[in-house]
């Protein structure tokens, strides 16, 4: 996809392709800025739907930046998962906020000043740290084939880092089960009776 982007820009600008890394740098920076802006707007807008999908936009921007850094698989999966999660989250927002979402100005802030101070401090500390540390640079050139990186991820997950896979999978399964158990008010036996056919159910209204 980053290749497609290159082609597109070369056509639009009608100039020979500039240095790939420059273009990539501009793209990643711009996408990062978009992610930060949309992320900040999440807590500024009045509408639950807009807040949810601004967060989704932030994730899509980061996903695109990750793709531009040749981590195609991870980037597209970020987009996929986060669109899905935000679609579900929107429903929960509406369900749990307890007010009319589209219309009402919402300010759900408590201890806003303290939170702002904490966030500002963390940003300053992190930035200073980032600028002070002498980051190592890789000896070789950055990867050029995103397909190979996807392959190496799979290779790692099924080889050296098998343990990660083996831990993550049962955790996910446990999450599904626990989530259903916690969230469900009435099991199907309670709803449908012992035979699960609904015949012996005393529910309804009489």
């Amino acid at each position: 996809m980053s290749l497609a982007f290159n082609e597109l820009s070369s056509v639009v600008l009608e100039t020979p392709l500039p240095d790939l890394s420059v273009l990539r740098g501009v793209a990643v920076t711009a996408l990062g800025v978009v992610a930060v802006v949309t992320g900040a707007l999440v807590f500024r807008v009045d509408s639950m739907a807009r807040a949810t999908y601004l967060l989704a936009a932030s994730f899509v921007a980061v996903g695109a930046a990750v793709v531009a850094l040749h981590l195609d698989y991870v980037g597209v999966v970020v987009v996929l998962m986060m669109l899905m999660e935000m679609a579900v989250m929107g429903v929960f927002m509406v369900m749990l906020m307890g007010m009319n979402p589209a219309l009402m100005p919402m300010s759900m802030v408590h201890s806003g000043r303290r939170a702002l101070a904490a966030a500002g401090t963390s940003f300053v500390v992190l930035t200073v740290g980032i600028l002070l540390v002498d980051w190592p640079t890789r000896p070789d050139a950055p990867p050029s084939d995103p397909g190979a990186t996807t392959y190496s991820l799979g290779d790692a997950l099924m080889g050296d880092h098998m343990l990660v896979m083996m831990v993550v999978s049962p955790v996910m399964l446990a999450t599904i089960v626990a989530g259903v158990v916690l969230a469900q008010a009435h099991g199907r036996y309670e709803r449908l009776g012992d035979d699960l056919r609904g015949t012996s159910r005393q529910g309804g209204r009489r």
Partner: peptide, 16 residues
Amino acid sequence: VLAAALFSVGLYGALS
């Protein structure tokens, strides 16, 4: 730095 900004905005949201 961009990542730090994202993190801090998130921190603000989580706290506030």
